[in-house]
């Protein structure tokens, strides 16, 4: 029953399909022996209620989790991708929170120009994949464990050595400026797809509100160092070397960033 319900083909095609046949080799006519008819519907018609419901219910969830992507792709194309995604990557956990976890990966795996050389590929799939990654990351950070319930910290008294990147701080690198597009859609706008431009983003949370923070490439590299477990001191040293600016200017730059990032939930004190 499950194999038939979760197949995006019609009921008969799903029953004849390899997946259903591997579980239970039945023909569509056999349904009437397994499922009792009602006074108004055959067994097959009754089973079809569940099949229609399976996709309709989960597509609604996908649309809720990828609202901006749905606008970018258009309703019909979004549903086509989401339906195929659910067929390839059906839910395997108790929570719908994981439903969209592999959607960006699926879009990358099934892009129409997958076999073309990179320089010949179309731009729009890259944009859509970036957008899916952004929406998924925002969804995760929104409900991830955060530091809101921890005792208030007097940041002026916290030494650099005690600073750690907050566990919920997500660092993302995009090929397109998807954050601007994302924000515009949530303002109720219908923005055009922007041209390619590297976009670096940190997503954090303060008082249970998401903060989308656009970064310069150097800031992104700096924060990545912290994410990889390096100390602030080590990351500042990297900064000094990379820019050939020397230790003191790097320290000054870090002080400016520290003041800006601390109230934005980038760090926890260890």
């Amino acid at each position: 029953m499950q194999t038939v319900l979760t197949d995006s083909a019609g009921l008969g095609a799903a029953m004849r399909g390899a997946a259903a046949q591997a579980v239970l080799p039945l023909q569509p006519a056999d349904i009437e022996q397994l499922i009792a008819p009602s006074s108004r519907m055959s067994g097959g018609q009754r089973l079809a209620v569940y099949q229609r419901g399976y996709f309709a219910r989960l597509l609604e969830c996908m649309a809720g989790q990828f609202r901006v992507l749905k606008q970018a792709l258009g309703e019909e194309l979004f549903e086509d991708f989401a339906r195929e995604y659910l067929a390839v990557y059906p839910s395997e956990t108790y929570t719908l929170g994981e439903l969209g976890a592999r959607f960006a990966q699926f879009l990358a795996e099934t892009r129409p120009d997958l076999d073309a050389p990179p320089e010949e590929r179309e731009a729009w799939p890259d944009f859509m994949i970036d957008l899916a990654r952004l929406e998924r990351a925002a969804f995760v950070v929104f409900d991830a464990p955060g530091s809101e319930q921890q005792p208030a910290v007097d940041w002026s008294a916290v030494a650099d050595a005690a600073l750690r990147l907050a566990p919920g701080c997500e660092l993302l690198r995009f090929r397109y400026p998807v954050n601007g597009y994302y924000q515009a859609v949530y303002r109720g706008e219908n923005p055009p797809l922007p041209p390619a431009q590297l976009n670096f983003l940190a997503i954090t949370r303060v008082n249970f509100q998401l903060v989308m923070f656009e970064l310069q490439p150097l800031q992104f590299q700096f924060l990545q160092q912290l994410q990889q477990g390096r100390t602030v001191q080590e990351a500042v040293a990297m900064l000094a070397t990379q820019l050939e600016m020397g230790q003191v200017p790097a320290e000054v730059l870090w002080r400016i960033w520290r003041a800006k990032w601390l109230p934005r939930g980038f760090f926890v004190a260890s």
Binding site: E60, C61, G64, G97, L99, A138, Q209
Partner: peptide
Amino acid sequence: PLSFLTPGIMTEEPIIASSRG
């Protein structure tokens, strides 16, 4: 229906701030 089961992260109030580094 299932869609109410996952939080609408931006449907209730302006909880997103966007800043530049």
